[in-house]
Design a binder for these strands. Structure first.
Length: 787
DNA sequence: ATAGGGTTAG
């Protein structure tokens, strides 16, 4: 509804320009002081557009009774400049223009309306406009063609872009830059480089300008092509590109140096820059975070704030928050949260997502959830961050709920979402869920992405299907170091040390360099297979042949290898000879082995060490208490548990679960909440009778509380893993393998009972505990009873 | 020109 002026005030619709003398009527109306003259309106329209006051411009436009092409163009142009938010208005106006048959679009209309399509990624409208331009004979116009190239590149229609480019009768640097920028957008380094070279061969007058370099530099950064980056730097100085576009070129250069890991050059470029803006500071801080120089990143962040709040941007805060997450510095993270709130940036999507992730990584999953619920706008990243937050905090089931919520809100999952979700299946050992995720990834066409395959390899391994892991590993288009490590680790938890070793040797044949994690996986694989000598060999080779200095994780693996293999004293001496000060986890590995090998004396000694270091986490309290219980020292065992409570460590109860027909059934020791509990307990009692006939005697040293012997037996009998297995026996047909997962280590008595169970119930049983897989069959376990 | 979520080891 546009307010129309009285018909008497209408002016003839000749297209006046600035240079034309005002029409005679101009004076008449101007004396009446009414801004209704078209020429005057046009000037005011231009003025509002120039000032960026688009609502006033629109208001004026609506006052023009018969707007000419210039008026349309001015407003379309203004709308198309303002990103996707206003681009839709530009398209609407263009459509109005087509309907208003009086005013055909001209060569100034097409580039701007195409720009709007590009901002909206609206390929359909773009192609329609392409054909309008062709009908008007304007599709090979320099500006129209360039706009078309930009559109097709952004919509990933690369051939169309090439066609347009090839049909151009003449090309300027902007056209070449559009091609180059398009390839840069898709990370196509070689194509972009080819156009850069062609551009210079083609016409010596065409020199790469600031825009060229600004497109090119991120590609060089991605390729870590430092030497080429340096030549670009030199060229930019020779071509004086720092004079006019210093901020753009400088920022792109310092970012390139940072991504190539050369912070020294980054800083030198930064210091040399005359003009800096928020993007420059963000790139600088982000560079330090990227190079793991968190403390300096914070220092720079503070320096930036000291320079003035105008430099503060969600991007720079995001980098600072990432530093907090990596350093697990919740204190600074909270300060940044306050800073965001104070500067009104807290509703920014990027900032919100960073905050959410930071809280999740710090273990404050409730804060993260609250933040998520408060976010007005959520995108795929927000959902993915929350999903991975839940998985990292051991709440895999919640992760699935978030995933479902995401689908209900029509937010499309992408590669990162699925890479966050698939580990939830791994944690739960939920093979059906895992297979569904696998199917979903195939449907979405992302199943051959390396990171997706890596997550799937891990999932299948942890769900007991190491065969499927290997299949994916063999079929995937490109393995990276994570793929190899995951596969080796997979063999490790299945006790397939020989296969792990074979894969490691294969890795060398394929010229893939092992890293520090590879050796952690390899040593742990040897440990789970009792390959003590071999494990020791790899450990030495790691340092001597590969020059990798052992980290705490390697020492933990070695102590585990030695102690689990029964060489408890050697393990103890190994700890004494470590160049690093052994932490709780190292002693914890030894303590665990003391329990398995029932070495109470050493166990108590180790327990004292752990107490001195302050038992971190719940695991060691439980082990400690177990050791004392095993020695019959129930007072001390009780003391440990009281201490645990005082320190605020929640007892994480032993929990086992089994997936049946795609749903999970979870059990806690002595738990009767499952609807089929009566049958389950009956079955266990009957199993006890049967296995006692075969000579089973309860090993009551695994009972924590001070109970009478008979009660102890019962306490053992209703351990969570036994409940889950009994439920499996009742539910699954005889030919099916029963696969149970436990969050803690499987208890020694259960280990014995399960072996008997395979005999008296003629079932194959697989138990995955916190450490590894146990394949029970015909009265034996694949781990050879050392685990 | 910068930036938010993701896979392996314990």
């Amino acid at each position: 509804m546009r307010p129309r002026l009285p018909a008497t005030k209408l002016k003839p619709a000749a297209a006046p320009t600035h240079r034309q003398p005002p029409p005679t009527t101009y004076r008449l109306l101007s004396t009446a002081a009414a801004p209704s003259d078209e020429c005057g309106l046009q000037q005011q329209l231009d003025a509002h557009v120039a000032r960026g006051n688009l609502s006033l411009a629109r208001h004026l436009f609506d006052q023009i009774p018969d707007p000419d092409v210039r008026a349309y163009n001015a407003l379309i142009r203004a709308y198309s400049w303002r990103g996707p938010g206003l681009a839709a208005y530009a398209l609407n106006l263009y459509r109005a223009m087509l309907q208003d048959r009086r005013v055909p679009p001209d060569k100034y209309t097409f580039p701007f309306v195409l720009k709007a399509c590009s901002a909206l990624l609206d390929l359909r409208s773009g192609r329609a406009i392409h054909s309008h331009a062709a009908r008007a004979g304007l599709h090979t116009d320099l500006f129209v063609s360039t706009a078309l190239i930009d559109l097709y590149m952004k919509c990933a229609f690369l051939c169309h872009a090439t066609n347009v480019f090839d049909q151009m009768p003449a090309r300027d640097a902007v056209a070449w830059n559009a091609m180059l920028a398009g390839y840069a957008l898709h990370g196509m380094y070689h194509h972009a480089l080819a156009y850069l070279l062609r551009m210079q061969d083609h016409d010596a007058r065409l020199r790469p300008n600031a825009s060229t370099l600004v497109s090119l530099l991120p590609l060089l950064a991605q390729q870590r092509a430092l030497s080429q980056g340096k030549s670009v730097h030199a060229y930019s100085v020779r071509a004086c590109l720092h004079d006019k576009d210093g901020v753009l070129v400088g920022t792109a250069l310092l970012d390139m140096y940072a991504k190539c890991g050369h912070l020294h050059y980054t800083c030198r470029v930064f210091e040399a820059m005359a003009d800096k803006n928020d993007v420059t500071w963000s790139a600088l801080i982000g560079g330090f975070v990227l190079c793991n120089r968190m403390v300096e990143a914070f220092r720079l962040f503070k320096e930036m704030l000291a320079q003035g709040l105008c430099f503060l941007s969600p991007t720079s805060v995001a980098s600072a928050l990432r530093a907090c997450a990596n350093l697990a510095d919740l204190h600074i993270g909270e300060q940044l949260h306050v800073l965001l709130a104070k500067s009104g940036l807290h509703s920014d999507l990027t900032a919100g997502n960073s905050l959410l992730s930071m809280y999740a990584k710090a273990g404050l999953i409730d804060e993260a959830t609250e933040l998520f619920d408060e976010m007005v706008v959520k995108d795929t990243v927000s959902y993915s961050a929350l999903i991975s937050g839940y998985v990292q905090n051991g709440m895999a089931d919640e992760a699935f709920l978030v995933f479902r919520k995401m689908q209900a809100h029509n937010v499309e999952p992408d590669v990162a979402t699925m890479v966050s979700l698939i580990p939830a299946c791994s944690h739960l050992a939920a093979l059906q869920h895992g297979k569904c995720s696998h199917a979903s990834v195939i449907v979405r066409g992302i199943a051959s992405e390396t990171s997706i395959c890596n997550a799937l390899i891990d999932m299948y391994a942890k769900c007991g299907r190491i065969d499927l892991s290997r299949q994916i590993f063999d079929v995937m288009p490109a393995q990276d170091i994570v793929s190899w490590n995951t596969m080796i680790a997979g063999y490790g938890i299945h006790g397939l040390g020989k296969e792990a070793t074979a894969l490691f040797l294969d890795m060398k044949n394929r010229a893939c360099e092992p890293d520090d994690v590879t050796f952690i996986c390899l040593i742990s694989a040897c440990s789970h297979s009792g390959l003590v000598t071999e494990g020791k060999r790899w450990f030495h080779m790691m340092e001597q042949r590969y020059g990798i200095t052992p980290r705490m994780e390697h020492y933990i693996g070695m102590v585990d290898l030695l102690a689990r293999g029964g060489f408890l004293d050697e393990a103890y001496q190994f700890i004494q000879s470590m160049p690093l000060k052994a932490d709780v986890r190292v002693w914890g590995a030894l303590l665990g082995a003391c329990r398995v090998h029932k070495n109470i004396d050493l166990g108590k000694q180790v327990a004292r060490m752990i107490q001195k270091l302050g038992a971190e986490g719940t695991g060691n309290f439980v082990l400690l208490s177990n050791i004392f219980s095993a020695a019959g020292r129930f007072d001390e065992a009780a003391e440990v548990r009281i201490l645990q409570k005082e320190k605020g460590f929640k007892k994480s109860p032993g929990c086992s679960w089994i997936e049946i027909n795609g749903s999970l059934h979870a059990f806690i020791g002595g738990d009767r909440s499952h609807p089929q509990s009566p049958q389950i307990y009956e079955e266990l009692d009957s199993i006890l009778v049967d296995i006692q006939k075969l000579g089973y005697q309860a090993d009551t040293s695994f009972v924590l509380q001070d109970l009478e012997d008979e009660e102890k037996e019962k306490a053992l009998l209703y351990h969570s893993e036994k409940l889950a297995i009994a439920f499996g026996i009742l539910t699954l047909s005889e030919d099916k393998t029963i696969f149970v997962t436990k969050n803690l280590r499987v208890c020694g008595d259960c280990h014995t009972v399960i072996k008997y169970m395979t005999l008296v119930r003629k079932r194959a049983i697989i138990v995955r505990d916190a450490n590894r897989f146990h394949h029970f069959k015909n009265g034996q376990c694949s781990c050879g009873d050392f685990w």
